[in-house]
Amino acid sequence: MFLPLRSLLKREYLRWVRAPTWIVAGLLSPILYLLLFGQAFDLGKLVPPVPAAQTGLTAALLGAPNYFSYFAVGMVGLVAVTSALFAGTGVIFDKQLGILQRTIATPVRRSTIFLSSLIFRGLLVVLPIFIVLGLALGFAQIPGLAGLTVTQTIGATGIVEVLVAIFVLAIAFTSLFLAFGFLFARVESYFAVVNLLNLPILFTSNALYPYGTSPQWIQNITAYNPISLAVDVMRENFFGSTYYAHPAYVYLGGLVVWAAALGVMALLLASRALRTK
């Protein structure tokens, strides 16, 4: 299994490094978000500088010291979705070009074909996430720029929880969009559905703004949204557990369930697409 997997990953890698536009645009868009949206859009400025109001703001931001710190962690969720959006396109092109047909005519296991896409596309999701987190932390050191300020001391467990949350979130969304890649024959159908899902997934999460003001039914959805779960794991570790009902590992557990469910769904759709007619 190892040699075929390595060969398939190498092919994905070569296609990626030979498309500079893909690399630059993929990495640039989260950075632009941080620079423009993050710097310009400060919810904290809407709140009067009186102590009572400021306490309310901290509660709304679930303990984050300022809106950018809150937003920067949420960016992880946003970047996970927007980077994973393209995960299924490679499969569709391979179908159309006959490359997938050639691959399934070799003794390679179907699960290896799926795994190679999941690993490579998952890495393309994780990479910009780390760039965003690194930049946001760096901004805090530059005077005049809003940055991500971590208010807690994070222990080894915390670091592991945050890293696992990032990787599991990447697996969840890569699986979801890969599944559509295996399901659809045309890029048009793929993007129609992906676009349809994109915004509801983002806006039923607490990635970009506090959801305390939204109606209860949205709040119920938000609590179980995989982005919320991942972001909760990180925020609780970064800003303290005061405003959280559960310890971070509970949210992480929920996220793992999501990733497992989406992973299994994608694997099933992949084996259906790759099986003998």
Binding site: L8, K10, R11, L14, A19, R102, A105
Partner: peptide, 29 residues
């Protein structure tokens, strides 16, 4: 078995040699 399809199925972004290496790897070489 080896297969040559009606349409070209080589990856255009890869070189000829890379396409052949990919094929070898898929057969466990």
């Amino acid at each position: 078995i080896g297969l040559v399809f009606q349409d070209s199925t080589a990856d255009g972004e890869l070189t000829g040699r890379e396409n052949m290496e990919l094929a070898g790897g898929l057969f466990g070489m």
